[in-house]
Computed example of a mutant assay.
Amino acid sequence: MSSWRKPARAAASLGEVAHQLTERDLAIVDHLSRFRLLTIVQLERVFFDSASSAYDRIKTLCEKGLLDRRRPSTHEAYRYFLGWLGLCLVHAIAVADFEHDPGIDLFGKSEKPKPGRAPTKLKARQHADTLFFSSHRSHLEGVNDFYTRLASSCRGDIEAVLRYWYVEHEAEKVSPAMGQRPDGCFDLAFAGQKREFTFEYDTGTEPLERLVRKVDWYNQEVARRQGIRSRDINEGKYSREQVLALASPRMMLIEFTKPGREANLHDRLTAAGGRDLVATTNTARSSDPLGPVWWCAGDSPAEMRCLDEVYTFRHL
């Protein structure tokens, strides 16, 4: 990709480059500290209006030492992650935040982890190795791809606002299902109306029975938190409209990489009553997660819904 951009000089320290960073640059560093690994296409979806502007700025941040990149093979896209100075910036922000508010509770203990030493260049290389040699990297990339598609759709929709995406370690704290660690949770606003979701990315590596149990456990926990026995829901004593009226639980969303596995899950849920608070899609049709790509439990395969419609249950 050709560019008029003048190559940037590598910075020797964080102080040398910190004053040159824009608000968008800081947001990119923050994203990579949380999402860990993103491609140039994914970064463009979230932060840029064109591929050329994304390439120019990300290349500059790499040259300055804030970002780094690798690719699994010469046939695949580069994956971008925090470089040494990017890790130093995240550490400096954490130190400043801790000094401003250490989060001391009533018992005199800090609720925030105290930042350790600033990262070294060796730590930065180890950080990159950990990302690329992780057996979970492809799963992480799949989750991040869904997030960036959703963020891009919201950027282009005047009604939908992506308020926040909770990455895996954050999602565990807000998920209604105790003991279950979803791949993500997110809060959306449709025309000002808040909707909350939990997200699972399914590649088919676990038995379908385990996924069915996960869905069942999730619904039991939602019911328990609302003071309803899940058995009463299954027996039809409460419609899903009534469940949603009592409180607005996080709807469980699942994106499958294998359409056949998605259909098998719905067959199992339908056989069990089909009243689960779950909607599914697959990567073959979910380029726009806001669109009519969601198959709600209990619906027919032909009745796909937009994301803002999965809280309504016309078939009950």
Rank of each mutant, 00 (worst) to 15 (best):
M1V: 07
M1G: 14
S3E: 10
R5V: 14
K6Y: 13
P7C: 07
A8F: 10
A10I: 00
S13Y: 00
L14E: 05
G15K: 01
E23D: 08
L26E: 04
I28L: 08
D30A: 11
S33H: 10
R36M: 10
T39Y: 13
L43P: 09
E44V: 15
S50N: 14
R57P: 09
R57D: 11
I58V: 15
K59M: 13
K59S: 13
L61P: 09
P72Q: 14
S73E: 02
F81P: 11
L82Q: 08
G83C: 09
G83I: 01
C88W: 13
C88S: 02
C88M: 06
L89S: 00
V90F: 08
A92K: 10
A92P: 01
A92F: 03
A94P: 11
D97H: 07
F98V: 11
F98T: 12
G103Q: 04
I104C: 11
I104T: 00
D105W: 06
F107H: 15
G108N: 08
S110P: 07
P113Q: 08
K114T: 14
K114I: 05
G116A: 10
P119W: 00
A124E: 05
R125F: 07
Q126W: 04
A128H: 05
T130M: 08
F132P: 04
S134D: 14
H136M: 05
H139P: 13
G142V: 03
N144E: 14
F146A: 01
F146W: 15
F146N: 03
Y147F: 15
R149V: 12
S152L: 13
S153F: 02
S153T: 02
D157M: 11
I158T: 15
A160P: 09
V161H: 03
R163F: 02
Y166G: 02
E168S: 09
A171P: 13
V174Y: 02
V174T: 05
S175V: 04
P176Q: 03
M178F: 06
G179Q: 05
P182I: 01
P182E: 09
D183F: 03
G184M: 06
G184A: 12
C185P: 13
F190C: 01
K194V: 09
R195M: 13
R195Q: 12
T203N: 12
T203S: 12
P207V: 09
R210E: 13
V215P: 02
R224D: 09
R224Y: 09
G227Y: 11
R229Q: 10
R229N: 14
S230M: 08
R231I: 03
D232F: 06
N234C: 00
K237P: 11
Q242N: 05
L244D: 01
L246F: 00
P249E: 00
I254P: 04
I254D: 00
T257E: 09
T257M: 12
K258V: 10
A263I: 08
N264D: 15
R268C: 10
A272R: 10
G274H: 07
A279T: 08
T281M: 09
N282Q: 10
R285C: 03
S287N: 15
S287G: 12
D288M: 03
D288W: 02
G291E: 07
P292W: 00
C296L: 11
A297C: 12
G298Q: 04
G298C: 06
G298F: 00
D299L: 01
P301R: 07
A302N: 09
E303P: 02
C306W: 01
L307P: 00
D308E: 13
Y311L: 07
Y311T: 02
